[in-house]
Design a protein around this nucleic acid. Structure first.
Lengths: 205, 205
DNA sequence: TCATCATAGTCAAGAAAATGACTATTCAGA
DNA sequence: TCTGAATAGTCATTTTCTTGACTATGATGA
């Protein structure tokens, strides 16, 4: 019972879609199809919540049945039809209650760290490769986040934006993603270097 | 099929136990009871792999059935009897294969980040409290990790240890945990401050 | 023209994980 | 003497996740 809140939070951000009707302010609430949501999840929310598209579709269906989101069919001619969802007032109330309740400790699971933990007992060759691969993926994400952040804050500088901007939630979580990936890159590169040196020393010996 | 590798990696570290027999080198492999493993997981492995005690017991039983770990009964008079497990050669081979295979992308899930993402639409009061709570928990972990790292490297300084120390895997993962918690603390404090300021501005308005 | 990508989903089986309760014993402290 | 914490586990139910399919259409590129 927790993916639901991530979905609600992601839906709230709204916009970023190419959905025709920009008319009618819905109280800062956006509209997404399951498909769009899946993509938004991938780049934004994935920094703190991982989920597969199938889960999102299933969760949206459940949320609709419970009245926390409202869906409407959009018939398209050039594309398959889709259903757009927006958060209802009940959904907003649910999110508010969630925010007030105590948080579960954060949950992490990382194969690569397990491999590093076992580095003294296994062949480090492939592990080094994976660390370098990860560092370069992190690098790419860092650039992406930089762009996303610049776009979100527009003309304002960061301090200014955080003080007066409307809708800073996604900005703050994106900052976290950025810091995480920077840390990820630093650590991966350092560990790769350490393991490489030790391999070299081992061969010479 | 992945918790198993985290368990194997954790078992390899070994030692830290008060088990009587320190005689007989087992090739750098330690021995743990399920109970001890659960505690070791909590402080060490939990930085990159979260698991409940029940899962560990279940996984140890499976691993034993498959011959990847070997258990032996230890009869105790002052305490309930226990079973100690050590990784077998087959277990080591399994870990090695795992290390060589490609890694799944890391998996993260964090309630508090979901709340921050929704910060523009919910009451931020409780969220601020939770952020501050998290910062202080992170602070405590930072100190703990500092101690653990100092203990692991002994007399040597870090560079020296990473070059010549035996068993650096757990050290490297602990470094990661440290960096993660530092980042966690910085971010939590900053976000709490930003949200506080905005609340204040909102009231004045 | 054929292949493949992007859009927009749905379904079902099986593995894994979370939850919550339950059994025992010993030791320390109120 | 009673309570509660630490040690050392086990069991069963439910929920959640993962895996791997399958259905369509339109646009893009070779």
């Amino acid at each position: 019972m927790a993916l639901r809140h991530a979905v609600l939070a992601a839906l709230l951000v709204g916009d970023g879609s190419d959905a025709g009707d920009t008319g009618g302010d819905s109280g800062g609430r956006g509209e997404y199809s399951g498909y769009q949501l899946a993509k938004a999840f991938d780049i934004g929310v994935a920094n703190f919540w991982h989920a597969l598209p199938q889960q999102l579709y299933a969760e949206l269906a459940k949320l609709e049945k419970e009245g926390l989101v409202a869906g409407r069919q959009v018939i398209q001619e050039t594309r398959p039809n889709k259903r757009l969802f927006r958060v209802t007032d009940a959904g907003l109330a649910e999110l508010d209650a969630f925010a007030a309740a105590s948080s579960k400790p954060s949950f992490i699971r990382d194969d690569l760290l397990v491999k590093v933990q076992a580095a003294d007992s296994v062949d480090t060759g492939p592990v080094i490769e994976q660390l370098e691969e990860r560092a370069s993926v992190a690098e790419a994400k860092i650039e992406l986040f930089g762009k996303v952040l610049r776009k979100m804050r527009g003309e304002l500088d960061e301090e200014e934006f955080l003080r007066r901007g409307e809708r800073i939630g996604p900005y703050l979580t994106c900052l976290r993603g950025l810091a995480l990936e920077q840390e990820n890159r630093e650590w991966s590169m350092r560990v790769a270097a350490v393991l490489r040196e030790r391999r070299a020393a081992h061969v010479e010996r």
